[in-house]
Amino acid sequence: MNATPPDCARWFTPGATLPPGGGRDAALTVTDLGELGLPTGRLVACDPIVHLGDDDERPAPFTVTVPPGRYPVQTVVADVEHPFRNRVIAAARLLVRDAPAAHWEPALVPGQDPADLADGDFFGYGVDAGVGCFLDASAHHAFPGTEDEEGVVWEAMDGGPPGPTAFLAEGVEGHTVAVFGSGWGDGCYPTWIGRAADGGVVCFVTDFRVLRFAPARPLPSGTVGP
Protein backbone atom coordinates (compact mmCIF):
# COMPACT_ATOMS: atom_id res chain seq x y z
CA MET A 1 0.00 0.00 0.00
CA ASN A 2 1.73 3.14 -1.22
CA ALA A 3 -1.14 5.62 -0.84
CA THR A 4 0.12 8.68 1.00
CA PRO A 5 -1.57 9.81 4.25
CA PRO A 6 -3.20 13.25 4.13
CA ASP A 7 -1.41 16.43 5.17
CA CYS A 8 -4.01 16.81 7.90
CA ALA A 9 -2.11 19.34 10.00
CA ARG A 10 -2.23 21.79 7.10
CA TRP A 11 -5.68 20.87 5.82
CA PHE A 12 -7.33 21.71 9.14
CA THR A 13 -5.41 24.94 9.69
CA PRO A 14 -7.90 27.85 9.34
CA GLY A 15 -7.09 30.07 6.37
CA ALA A 16 -4.71 27.59 4.73
CA THR A 17 -4.28 27.55 0.97
CA LEU A 18 -3.12 24.44 -0.85
CA PRO A 19 -2.89 23.28 -4.47
CA PRO A 20 -5.71 20.83 -5.31
CA GLY A 21 -3.55 19.02 -7.84
CA GLY A 22 -4.70 20.84 -10.94
CA GLY A 23 -2.29 23.76 -10.76
CA ARG A 24 -4.53 26.26 -8.95
CA ASP A 25 -4.64 27.05 -5.26
CA ALA A 26 -7.56 26.01 -3.05
CA ALA A 27 -8.62 28.19 -0.12
CA LEU A 28 -9.63 26.02 2.85
CA THR A 29 -12.32 26.65 5.47
CA VAL A 30 -12.66 24.54 8.61
CA THR A 31 -16.20 23.99 9.93
CA ASP A 32 -17.22 22.49 13.27
CA LEU A 33 -20.29 20.24 13.03
CA GLY A 34 -20.63 19.49 16.75
CA GLU A 35 -19.94 16.46 18.91
CA LEU A 36 -20.67 12.94 17.72
CA GLY A 37 -21.69 10.39 20.32
CA LEU A 38 -19.76 7.11 20.29
CA PRO A 39 -21.41 5.09 23.08
CA THR A 40 -19.43 1.96 22.17
CA GLY A 41 -16.29 3.67 20.88
CA ARG A 42 -16.57 1.71 17.60
CA LEU A 43 -16.50 4.20 14.72
CA VAL A 44 -18.16 3.51 11.36
CA ALA A 45 -17.58 5.54 8.18
CA CYS A 46 -19.93 4.90 5.26
CA ASP A 47 -22.45 6.29 2.78
CA PRO A 48 -25.49 6.81 5.05
CA ILE A 49 -28.04 6.72 2.23
CA VAL A 50 -26.87 3.33 1.00
CA HIS A 51 -26.02 1.68 4.31
CA LEU A 52 -28.03 2.97 7.28
CA GLY A 53 -30.73 0.58 8.44
CA ASP A 54 -30.00 -2.10 5.84
CA ASP A 55 -28.60 -5.22 7.48
CA ASP A 56 -27.51 -6.60 4.11
CA GLU A 57 -25.37 -3.48 3.60
CA ARG A 58 -24.33 -2.99 7.22
CA PRO A 59 -20.76 -1.63 7.30
CA ALA A 60 -18.23 -2.92 9.81
CA PRO A 61 -16.65 -0.57 12.35
CA PHE A 62 -12.94 0.15 12.24
CA THR A 63 -10.75 -2.26 14.15
CA VAL A 64 -9.18 0.61 16.13
CA THR A 65 -11.58 1.76 18.84
CA VAL A 66 -11.66 4.76 21.18
CA PRO A 67 -13.07 5.21 24.70
CA PRO A 68 -16.84 5.71 24.65
CA GLY A 69 -17.71 9.40 24.68
CA ARG A 70 -18.50 12.43 22.56
CA TYR A 71 -16.02 13.70 19.99
CA PRO A 72 -15.92 16.84 17.83
CA VAL A 73 -16.34 16.46 14.08
CA GLN A 74 -14.98 18.95 11.56
CA THR A 75 -14.99 19.31 7.80
CA VAL A 76 -12.60 21.25 5.61
CA VAL A 77 -14.17 22.93 2.57
CA ALA A 78 -11.98 23.71 -0.43
CA ASP A 79 -12.77 26.58 -2.81
CA VAL A 80 -11.44 25.39 -6.15
CA GLU A 81 -12.03 26.23 -9.79
CA HIS A 82 -14.19 23.64 -11.49
CA PRO A 83 -16.80 23.83 -14.29
CA PHE A 84 -19.59 22.41 -12.12
CA ARG A 85 -18.79 23.13 -8.48
CA ASN A 86 -16.50 25.57 -6.72
CA ARG A 87 -16.88 24.62 -3.05
CA VAL A 88 -16.48 20.99 -2.03
CA ILE A 89 -15.74 19.13 1.20
CA ALA A 90 -12.18 17.87 0.93
CA ALA A 91 -11.98 15.94 4.21
CA ALA A 92 -13.85 15.12 7.41
CA ARG A 93 -12.19 14.64 10.79
CA LEU A 94 -13.24 13.15 14.11
CA LEU A 95 -11.05 14.55 16.90
CA VAL A 96 -10.19 12.20 19.73
CA ARG A 97 -7.35 14.07 21.48
CA ASP A 98 -6.03 17.63 21.38
CA ALA A 99 -2.53 16.61 20.33
CA PRO A 100 -0.49 16.63 17.11
CA ALA A 101 -0.41 13.47 15.02
CA ALA A 102 3.12 12.08 14.89
CA HIS A 103 2.32 9.37 12.37
CA TRP A 104 -0.56 7.96 10.33
CA GLU A 105 -1.98 4.56 9.50
CA PRO A 106 -4.93 3.37 7.39
CA ALA A 107 -8.21 2.81 9.23
CA LEU A 108 -9.16 -0.80 8.56
CA VAL A 109 -12.19 -3.01 9.12
CA PRO A 110 -11.94 -6.72 9.99
CA GLY A 111 -10.48 -8.79 7.18
CA GLN A 112 -8.50 -5.98 5.56
CA ASP A 113 -4.72 -6.32 5.30
CA PRO A 114 -2.66 -3.61 3.57
CA ALA A 115 -0.22 -6.32 2.47
CA ASP A 116 -2.91 -7.57 0.09
CA LEU A 117 -3.05 -4.30 -1.86
CA ALA A 118 -1.26 -3.49 -5.09
CA ASP A 119 1.00 -0.43 -5.21
CA GLY A 120 -1.02 2.76 -4.97
CA ASP A 121 -4.28 1.06 -3.95
CA PHE A 122 -6.05 1.65 -0.67
CA PHE A 123 -8.97 0.44 1.41
CA GLY A 124 -11.89 2.83 1.62
CA TYR A 125 -15.66 2.96 1.68
CA GLY A 126 -17.81 3.30 -1.40
CA VAL A 127 -20.09 6.31 -1.92
CA ASP A 128 -23.04 6.11 -4.31
CA ALA A 129 -25.18 9.01 -3.01
CA GLY A 130 -22.61 11.81 -2.82
CA VAL A 131 -22.31 11.83 0.98
CA GLY A 132 -20.33 10.07 3.68
CA CYS A 133 -20.77 9.94 7.43
CA PHE A 134 -19.35 9.05 10.83
CA LEU A 135 -21.46 7.22 13.43
CA ASP A 136 -21.20 4.67 16.20
CA ALA A 137 -21.63 1.01 15.29
CA SER A 138 -24.63 0.80 17.63
CA ALA A 139 -26.49 3.55 15.71
CA HIS A 140 -27.09 1.53 12.53
CA HIS A 141 -30.86 1.36 13.08
CA ALA A 142 -31.20 4.78 14.76
CA PHE A 143 -32.21 6.62 11.56
CA PRO A 144 -35.25 4.78 10.18
CA GLY A 145 -36.41 5.66 6.69
CA THR A 146 -33.05 6.87 5.39
CA GLU A 147 -32.94 4.20 2.68
CA ASP A 148 -36.47 5.28 1.62
CA GLU A 149 -35.53 8.98 1.39
CA GLU A 150 -37.32 9.73 4.65
CA GLY A 151 -36.36 10.60 8.23
CA VAL A 152 -34.08 13.10 9.90
CA VAL A 153 -31.10 12.59 7.58
CA TRP A 154 -33.13 13.45 4.49
CA GLU A 155 -34.89 16.31 6.29
CA ALA A 156 -31.52 17.83 7.14
CA MET A 157 -30.26 17.35 3.59
CA ASP A 158 -33.37 18.87 2.02
CA GLY A 159 -33.59 21.76 4.48
CA GLY A 160 -29.92 22.67 4.70
CA PRO A 161 -28.35 25.91 3.47
CA PRO A 162 -26.83 26.22 -0.02
CA GLY A 163 -23.35 24.81 -0.39
CA PRO A 164 -21.70 21.52 0.50
CA THR A 165 -23.75 19.20 2.70
CA ALA A 166 -22.50 19.02 6.30
CA PHE A 167 -24.55 18.50 9.45
CA LEU A 168 -24.98 16.54 12.67
CA ALA A 169 -28.36 14.80 13.04
CA GLU A 170 -29.95 13.06 16.01
CA GLY A 171 -31.86 9.79 15.65
CA VAL A 172 -33.71 7.52 18.04
CA GLU A 173 -32.42 6.92 21.57
CA GLY A 174 -30.09 9.92 21.31
CA HIS A 175 -27.82 8.42 18.64
CA THR A 176 -26.12 10.91 16.34
CA VAL A 177 -24.62 10.86 12.86
CA ALA A 178 -22.28 13.36 11.19
CA VAL A 179 -23.04 13.62 7.47
CA PHE A 180 -20.89 15.43 4.91
CA GLY A 181 -20.56 15.76 1.15
CA SER A 182 -17.98 13.45 -0.40
CA GLY A 183 -15.68 15.73 -2.39
CA TRP A 184 -16.50 15.67 -6.11
CA GLY A 185 -19.17 13.01 -5.56
CA ASP A 186 -19.35 9.24 -5.76
CA GLY A 187 -16.23 7.12 -5.45
CA CYS A 188 -14.14 5.20 -2.95
CA TYR A 189 -12.51 7.13 -0.11
CA PRO A 190 -9.88 6.16 2.48
CA THR A 191 -9.93 6.99 6.18
CA TRP A 192 -6.69 7.50 8.12
CA ILE A 193 -5.87 7.33 11.82
CA GLY A 194 -3.52 9.89 13.30
CA ARG A 195 -1.56 8.81 16.36
CA ALA A 196 0.35 10.93 18.87
CA ALA A 197 3.99 10.30 19.75
CA ASP A 198 2.85 8.10 22.65
CA GLY A 199 0.80 5.92 20.27
CA GLY A 200 -2.62 7.14 21.35
CA VAL A 201 -5.28 7.88 18.74
CA VAL A 202 -5.56 11.60 17.91
CA CYS A 203 -8.10 11.57 15.09
CA PHE A 204 -9.76 9.80 12.17
CA VAL A 205 -9.69 11.61 8.83
CA THR A 206 -11.60 10.66 5.69
CA ASP A 207 -9.82 12.00 2.61
CA PHE A 208 -12.16 12.82 -0.30
CA ARG A 209 -9.21 13.11 -2.67
CA VAL A 210 -9.78 16.75 -3.61
CA LEU A 211 -6.53 18.37 -2.52
CA ARG A 212 -3.96 16.09 -4.14
CA PHE A 213 -5.73 15.18 -7.36
CA ALA A 214 -7.29 17.20 -10.17
CA PRO A 215 -11.08 16.69 -10.56
CA ALA A 216 -11.68 13.55 -12.59
CA ARG A 217 -14.30 10.97 -13.43
CA PRO A 218 -15.69 9.55 -10.15
CA LEU A 219 -14.30 6.16 -9.20
CA PRO A 220 -16.71 3.24 -9.31
CA SER A 221 -18.20 2.27 -5.98
CA GLY A 222 -16.22 -0.31 -4.07
CA THR A 223 -13.89 -0.97 -1.21
CA VAL A 224 -10.55 -0.54 -2.97
CA GLY A 225 -9.50 2.41 -5.09
CA PRO A 226 -6.43 3.57 -6.98
Rank of each mutant, 00 (worst) to 15 (best):
G69M: 09
P106Q: 02
T146A: 10
A45G: 10
A178G: 01
V153F: 06
W11M: 04
G126T: 11
D116H: 14
V76A: 07
D128T: 14
F143S: 01
C133D: 08
P59C: 10
V152K: 09
R195F: 05
L168T: 04
V73A: 10
D98K: 13
A102V: 02
D25R: 11
A92I: 06
G159C: 13
D121Y: 14
V177P: 02
V177K: 00
G132R: 05
L36V: 03
A78T: 07
A196E: 04
P144T: 11
D55H: 13
M1I: 10
P226V: 05
A169L: 08
V76C: 04
V44F: 03
F134K: 01
V109S: 03
F122I: 03
V64S: 12
V66K: 04
V172G: 13
D98W: 10
L43P: 06
V224G: 02
P226G: 14
C133S: 15
R209F: 00
A99N: 10
R85H: 12
G34E: 07
G120V: 15
T206I: 03
V50M: 12
P6A: 04
T206E: 01
A102C: 00
A45L: 05
L94E: 09
A216N: 06
T29A: 15
E57W: 06
M1C: 12
F204S: 03
V202E: 04
T17F: 09
G34Y: 03
P110C: 08
D79Y: 00
H141T: 10
Q112F: 13
G174I: 06
V109F: 02
D7C: 06
G126D: 11
W104P: 01
G15L: 07
A142R: 09
G222W: 10
A169Y: 08
F123A: 04
R24W: 13
A137W: 10
T63C: 10
G111W: 05
A216G: 10
Q74F: 08
G23M: 09
D116C: 13
G222L: 08
R97V: 09
L108P: 05
G34R: 01
L18M: 15
V109K: 03
E155R: 15
T63N: 04
R42F: 03
V202R: 08
V66I: 09
P100K: 07
T75G: 07
G171H: 06
P190E: 04
L94V: 15
E105H: 04
P162Y: 05
V44C: 08
D128I: 11
G124H: 09
G187E: 00
R42K: 14
D148Q: 15
P215S: 11
G174R: 02
V64W: 00
R58C: 14
L168A: 00
F167Y: 13
L117Q: 05
V131D: 07
L168V: 02
G15C: 12
L95R: 10
V205L: 06
V177E: 02
V80W: 09
A16G: 11
F122A: 10
G187K: 06
G130T: 11
A197C: 03
C188M: 05
L219M: 14
